Amino acid sequence: MRIFQWMYDKALLWAKHRHAERYLAGLSFTESVIFPIPPDVMLAPMALARPAMAWRFAWITTLFSLFGGICGYFLGLWLFEPVVLPAVEYLGKQETFAKVQQWFTDYGVWVVFIAGFSPIPYKLFTVGAGLMGMAFVPFVIASFVGRASRFFLVAGLMYWGGEKMQQKLRDIVDALGWGTVALGAVLYLVYS
């Protein structure tokens, strides 16, 4: 069954849509505050479909992710108890958020940089930075450097990989997709 290859082809087609940049900006912003899907899932196909625009897409992703991170910071700073805390409790993520707070105590601004670059949910650290009263300018600098490093790396890999990478990914995307589904199922069984 080649469902992932079909989805991959559709993603490349949608990446050329006239509003694709707006969707990328919206996804980048919301992912930094509340949304669970990282913008890399749009950035990569857009950079593959239009390599000449890869660096522009990386800038859009970085800047709107940073704006979302700033919004998350102020949510944590001003609206933690009335807005964020009930959501954390509803989702049962009190332990996770307590761990994030401990990481801020232990590592300071470095945790923002690491969360900005890595697949760790960045949104937890934007809200956490505001809640912990982290200095705003170091937060913005660490967020910018971490996010820019990540998104320019993704765009660069797609740009330099070009058409060869596009075809290679198309050839293996079903194996990657089904492997991810299987891994998710195994992790669910192990942790439930």
Rank of each mutant, 00 (worst) to 15 (best):
L27Q: 02
M1G: 12
F67I: 01
R50H: 10
W14F: 13
L12S: 05
V127Q: 01
V109H: 09
L176H: 05
R18P: 14
T96F: 04
V33H: 02
G177N: 04
I34M: 13
V140T: 12
E81L: 06
E163Y: 13
G146A: 08
S28P: 07
A52N: 07
Q94A: 10
Q94T: 13
A25L: 05
P51S: 06
Y8E: 06
V145I: 15
G146F: 07
P86Y: 01
G69L: 00
F35C: 04
L189G: 15
G108S: 09
D106Q: 15
A44L: 08
G92S: 06
L176R: 02
I70A: 12
A11L: 14
R2C: 05
A182N: 06
R50T: 14
K16Y: 02
Y8I: 09
V190R: 14
L12K: 08
G92H: 06
K123M: 07
M1I: 10
R2S: 11
Y122V: 00
A52W: 08
P121K: 05
T62N: 11
A52T: 09
W103K: 08
A155Q: 07
K10P: 03
M7Y: 11
D174W: 09
R150E: 08
T180R: 00
L157W: 05
F35N: 01
P82T: 07
Y188W: 11
R150M: 09
Y8P: 06
L187S: 00
P39S: 00
F97K: 02
I70N: 07
M132K: 10
Y159E: 04
L13N: 12
W59E: 00
P86V: 01
M42H: 08
L189R: 13
W78G: 13
D171Y: 15
G177D: 05
W178G: 06
P38H: 00
I141M: 05
I172F: 14
G184H: 02
R170W: 13
M1R: 11
Q166M: 15
F144A: 06
A182S: 09
L43C: 04
W78A: 09
P86N: 03
E81C: 04
R50C: 07
D171V: 13
F57M: 10
A135W: 11
A98C: 10
V112M: 03
Y188S: 02
P121A: 08
F67T: 02
S32V: 00
L176K: 03
I141L: 11
P138W: 12
V83D: 03
R56H: 14
R18G: 00
F139H: 09
D40P: 11
S149Q: 00
G76P: 04
A25N: 03
A155L: 05
L176G: 07
G26N: 08
A182Y: 04
F113E: 05
V88W: 09
L48N: 04
T30F: 11
D9F: 10
D106S: 14
M165I: 14
A148D: 08
M134V: 09
E81K: 11
L131H: 13
V173P: 09
Y8W: 13
W110V: 09
T180M: 10
A25E: 00
V100T: 03
D40T: 04
V109A: 15
T62R: 11
D171L: 15
S192Q: 12
M1D: 10
E89T: 12
